[in-house]
Structures are given as structure tokens and as C-alpha cells.
Design a protein around this nucleic acid. Structure first.
Lengths: 219, 219
DNA sequence: ACTGCGGCTAACCATTCGGTCAATGGCAAC
DNA sequence: GTTGCCATTGACCGAATGGTTAGCCGCAGT
């Protein structure tokens, strides 16, 4: 079939086994993402991966194991590398950067996000460890927001007087709302720059944006 | 559709057929709600409704038809009766009332909301008419918000200077975010009063709430 | 008494599901 | 060349799926 497995002797062997395993995972990821777990059959995965169904069961003992493998692979890029660039920014810029990163991530990983959402929506008990990881990520993000808002309030440059926890929760909710709006309504629903501006106005009152490195809107 | 033509004789005739149909719908609703469409089998519905599987197919031609029937029944209470009480309130109170109604509805109909969410998440093409209805409801709600914010801005009692459409979209997103937070995190996540206060502060600046007493924000 | 029909069911059907198994080709080691 | 392992496959399995069919039961109309 269409596989182009060119051996490049000098570098790592990259066995055919790994190749097929990879393609199975890739196909499964796609199918699970926009059809869900129960609606995706192993035969479909096999067909999409150009591989026999039996081979899937050779790589992964059960359907659940394949599923968990997909989940783990999806979770990999979910860690937003943030700390390094944040050091040079003031709090307001950090907050705005966080918001922007969240939305950009959602926009660029829509199918994965959709996947997790669908998964968490009804199969709460399957893949418990995974949910835990996602939750951890989530609350980490929230903690960063809380801290930033706290600092910003202490410095008195914040127009908002609500408790930081509530404010962060509200902001996070707004972001999540944008997320689901993006998933359900058309792809044009998410507008990171607009959202950042809105958050700025909400937190710091009506004023010019802090860091206007004005890039043209991409979408 | 949705006709409720109950003949009011002296006593309700209430044929056995209607009874069984009702119980099937009830069982199906419950199963669909927390297991999804594909994960729910007709045999399960039958067992849960204490009825033979064939009877289900006597009432409803296919599984999809049963599903749509359930959807329609779920959609009935979704129309927030709002206009009548709104007349007596000023714009700010109306906005706050809208927000509160949204959150209360979500809290009280969590399983239905979860159901619709899951449904819209992956099976976009199934039950297209339903999605249409939900969308209609949704954009109606949004339109009300837009109009209210517009008026409030014209009256100059609004601290926010963003375009009403953007503001409404942002507010709706925040509400949706609270929604999914409620669905995923514990039931304690939703706090209508706190949210209303927050929205008030966002739109009208830091001041005493218009109609409600200050409630301590819960975590 | 019989007929017709709405409500209901057990048994059945074809298909698909997750999963198994015996068998095979390729290839490195001996 | 043979051995042995890795990767891979088509054919197969029992269970469960959505859906059908033939027929039962009670009862109103005649």
C-alpha cells in the first residue's frame, strides 16, 4: 500500500512495527476524535490505517488499551510551555498571553479538544487517570490566573474588585464558553485578539491595550 | 408537533398505549441522557421500560425515531418564559434576570443539557432539525442580550464600551463556560448569585448590586 | 358467536461487534 | 539451508446489535 518506508541506514532503524503502530494510533485518534469511543469500530480503525484488524489486537490487547494509548498521545502536546517567556512580561501581559495561548491552543487542536470533551461528557469512569491529568492541567492554569489577578489587584492596576478566585473562575468559564462556541458554531467563532481585548477591558477598565504588537488577524 | 391534545372527559381515558409509550420515552430519555445514543441499546430501553423490544418498534419505527421523540420531549421545557415579568424591570435587572434564568435552568436540567451537548458534539448530522431548534433558542437568547446591552449603553449606564454583539457573545460564552464547569466539576461549581454579581460588575462597573444582596462567592 | 383491531410479545434474522487463531512472509543468526 | 522470531494476515467465533414476523390476548361492534 501507500507506505513509504525508506530505510536510512545511518539513523535509527525505525522498525516497521513502530510504523504500523503509529499509523494505527493516528487513524484511531482521528476516528475516536470525531465519532467517539463506542461509535468507532476496530474494523474501521483497521481500514483507515490500511492494516488488518488482527494487527491492531497484536499491538494493543483490547480496544480500551488502544483508546488509552490514543488518549496519552493526545495529552502530550497539552502542556503549554509558558514560564520562560512569561518572565519578561508584566502581569497584564502575562494574563493576556495566557488567554491568548488558551484560545490558540483550542483553535489549533480542535479535534483533540472535542475528543476529550466528548469523552468526559459521558464516560466519566473510563480512563480515570486521564481525566485526572486533564484536571491537573486545568487547575494549574487556573492557579496561574488566580495568582496573576491577585498580584494585579495588589498593585492597584486592576479595575475589578471581585475575589481573585471568582474572577479567575469567571474568566476560565468565559474561555471555556468560547471553546464550546468554537466547537459548535462555525470555526469563525473564536477570535483570540478580540477576546484578549475584552478581557483587558474587563480587568483593567476601558483603555488602550497594553502591548499592541498589532499583528493582522489570521483567521 | 408537540401537540398535547388531552381529551378532558370526566376521567382520563389514558389508554394503555399512551402509558407504555410514555414509559418507553421515559426510560429512553434516561438511558440516552447518561449513556448516549450509540451506547444505548433498544433491548436496554425495553428492559428499563418493562416492555418487550418489539413494542418499542411498534411505537417508533426506528431507533432514530425514538431518539427524536425523546429529543422533542426534552426540548419542551426549554423555552424560558421571560417576557411577561421582564416588562416591569429596568434593563439592568432584565440582564441579571436573564443570566440567572440561564444558570438556574442549567442547574435544574443538567442531565438534559448534558444530553444535548453530547449529542451536538459528535453526531452533527443526526437529528438536524433538533439542532436547528436549539440553535434558534440560543440565538434568540443572544439577541435579547444584544438588545439589552445596546439600550444600556445608549442610556450611558454601562461601563463597557465594546460592541454589544461582542459583549453579548462574551457573556454568553461565560455562561456556557459555567455550564460546562458545572457538568464536569462538582455540582457546587455553579453559583447563580455570584455570577450575576460578577456580570453586574463587568457591565456596570464596581458598585452595589442592583437587586440582590452581596453573597460571599463560593469556591 | 364471530370478526376486527389495537396493544403486546417470543422468537427469529441478518449484520456487526470485539476478539482469537492458525498460518505465512521476511529476515537476521547460526 | 535451516531455525526462530517478528510482523502481519484472512478466516473465524460467540455475543450483541437494530429490526422483523407471526401470532397471542382482550374487547368493542355486529
Amino acid at each position: 500500500m501507500g507506505v513509504s518506508q525508506i530505510k536510512v541506514g545511518i539513523t535509527e532503524p525505525r522498525t516497521a512495527s513502530q510504523d504500523s503502530r503509529d499509523e494505527i494510533l493516528k487513524a484511531a485518534m482521528q476516528l475516536f476524535a470525531n465519532r467517539g469511543f463506542h461509535e468507532t469500530s476496530m474494523s474501521e480503525v483497521a481500514r483507515e490505517a490500511h492494516v488488518s484488524k488482527a494487527l491492531i489486537f497484536w499491538h494493543f490487547k483490547t480496544k480500551e488499551e488502544l483508546f488509552v494509548a490514543v488518549l496519552n498521545r493526545l495529552l502530550e502536546p497539552y502542556f503549554i510551555d509558558f514560564a520562560e517567556e512569561a518572565a519578561a512580561m508584566d502581569e497584564r501581559q502575562q494574563i493576556e498571553k495566557l488567554v491568548e495561548a488558551y484560545l490558540l491552543f483550542v483553535r489549533d487542536n480542535a479535534s483533540s479538544v472535542r475528543f476529550f470533551l466528548a469523552q468526559m461528557l459521558h464516560d466519566q469512569r473510563l480512563s480515570e487517570g486521564l481525566n485526572e491529568q486533564v484536571l491537573k492541567l486545568y487547575s494549574g492554569y487556573r492557579a496561574m490566573l488566580v495568582e496573576l489577578i491577585t498580584r494585579v489587584q495588589q498593585k492597584n492596576i486592576c479595575a475589578l474588585r471581585t475575589a481573585p478566585e471568582s474572577a479567575a473562575a469567571f474568566l476560565l468559564s468565559a474561555l471555556n464558553g468560547l471553546l464550546i462556541e468554537y466547537l459548535f458554531m462555525g470555526a469563525n467563532a473564536i477570535d483570540p485578539e478580540g477576546a484578549v481585548a475584552m478581557v483587558g477591558e474587563w480587568l483593567f477598565g476601558p483603555s488602550g491595550t497594553s502591548s499592541s504588537e498589532g499583528g493582522a488577524p489570521s483567521a
